[in-house]
Design a protein around this nucleic acid. Sequence first.
DNA 1: GTGAAAGCGCTAACAA
DNA 2: TTGTTAGCGCTTTCAC
Lengths: 330, 330
Amino acid sequence: MRVTKAKLSDVARIAGVSPMTVSRVLNGRGGASPETSERIRQIADELRYQPNALARGLKSDKSGIVGVVVPDIANPFFPEIIRGIENVAMQHGYNLLLCNVVESADREINLMRTLESQRVDGVVWCSARLPEKDLLKALESFKAAVLVNRTVPPQIAGSIMIDYRAGAADALRHLWDLGRRRIGIIAGPAASRGAMERLEGLRMVFAELGAEPVATVHCAPDVNGGMAASRELLGANSQVDGLICYNDLNAVGTLQTCEALGIRVPEDISIIGFDGIPLAEFVRPKLSTLHVDKYGIGQLGMRMLLERIEGKFVQHSIVIRPQLIARNST
Amino acid sequence: MRVTKAKLSDVARIAGVSPMTVSRVLNGRGGASPETSERIRQIADELRYQPNALARGLKSDKSGIVGVVVPDIANPFFPEIIRGIENVAMQHGYNLLLCNVVESADREINLMRTLESQRVDGVVWCSARLPEKDLLKALESFKAAVLVNRTVPPQIAGSIMIDYRAGAADALRHLWDLGRRRIGIIAGPAASRGAMERLEGLRMVFAELGAEPVATVHCAPDVNGGMAASRELLGANSQVDGLICYNDLNAVGTLQTCEALGIRVPEDISIIGFDGIPLAEFVRPKLSTLHVDKYGIGQLGMRMLLERIEGKFVQHSIVIRPQLIARNST
DNA sequence: GTGAAAGCGCTAACAA
DNA sequence: TTGTTAGCGCTTTCAC
């Protein structure tokens, strides 16, 4: 490891010019004769000079870093979003400070402090679980913010929403069209915004249909949560013939339960997930789901954040409509 | 959004003391009477003072940020590692600057410059694809570095290695014990270190056995890559009865091919993957694999990095041995 | 127990 | 075209 790092003044000294000139040249703002410029560039190269982002950030009050907060990076839903964010961020010279909340609200508050300390230029915050009041207070500290899966007044943050109501409604209608009448709900985390919205969408359609769900069970948004919830729902002589799951992970857990219990899918029961993660295609039967364009969400979110960082507020809110993909589990 | 951010001097002014005193108190280095300290803390709280990490970093030459580089965050192998890294990093007050290489060597070089500019305190670099010479040069710029899946001399970087040779050897012996004699290899990316090592392990065992692989095909390390490679291998009247895959994603792709081609697994052919990602348990048949403790790798890697950041070099290299998990695909 | 001065590396504003 | 001055927010050093 090299011991000392070249700084602007080193380049300047060797080139026999002032630091200011080096700064101008290296930042492409002219300010020197072609020959001087060339010499400066060459010396910078030889010295492997890399500007100190800390100093630059301190001076300019821009860190070049964007905070990304996700509840659980092990949930395949989020890496796709992150890729979308990174794709756009990179093109614009931003880096990603990634924070994994591990599904805990306490951590979220701490994280906010950290990100504030790091003086991130903005934040993309996915599936925030904080109560409204805390959330608003936390968001205050950022120059710009975009929420995924949550809304606040537009002057506080932009938002990318997934239309969970519509998605859940589609899921229910799909099962109903298939002749399923005894429908259960694996509803995900009780504290989740998205879970509530799905439930609202379902209630609406159930009302239209003059029907009611057989049962509703909350659970963690992962495979184990789905297994536990489905065991509860499909236990001794349940007559459930259709199951709407909070997400694909829950649905995969349900598939495991059905297999263990000898319940045939889709003959005895139809199962539908949500999100459209790759895994859904690889299980058997292939999982029907409401597909969400995660990469696109990431890109949109980051673009929206860029606008906000630059002080433009072209678009405050974008709603993504999930798309029903009927595969073999329904 | 609040317009101005409180700084140290604001707290000092209001508290009627010097910035220095505030600094000492807030950093828990005594330096003030209990009453003064209490007052300072309270004012800092009211002002929602958060220290500027840029300024602190500039002064102390420590950014509090650790760079994490992965080839593809959408590959479920890496989020687990990241979680492990974050878990330890967080406990020690470090944040993660995440960089997704998207499997491209050019990007790796650029990334290094960026991370250098950000003055990260260290780097955990997973599955670097850079040629040795470039890699060494790139690593020079960091105060501390740990590689996952690659080694360099210990003074350059620590390393967490997965014993791919042993793992691949186990895989082959497993298939052989099952009576498989016409074994093909889906070898992953030709440029990957890990791929080469697996191949070496296989060659060794093949030699012991006095046998040879029927065919070897390279491919991208994802499901599609596995599908393409397996179609090539299992095409018209292949007699392959065992397939060793670079990773679980490749193996899942192979499973798809077998299904499409009407090849029964494990009756007609045994298939084994590598990594032990969750997905492997959810496909049918359940995938046999060589399980790697990804979360543990992340933790170990970050701990090793911490030691290096602190100038200790207790351990230079750790080797993780993959564990054979025989499920239903073999 | 408390504070003043100086400087980390960079750049905006102004001078020459 | 080039350089000087000053300051971003913090902390180390030394003095009181």
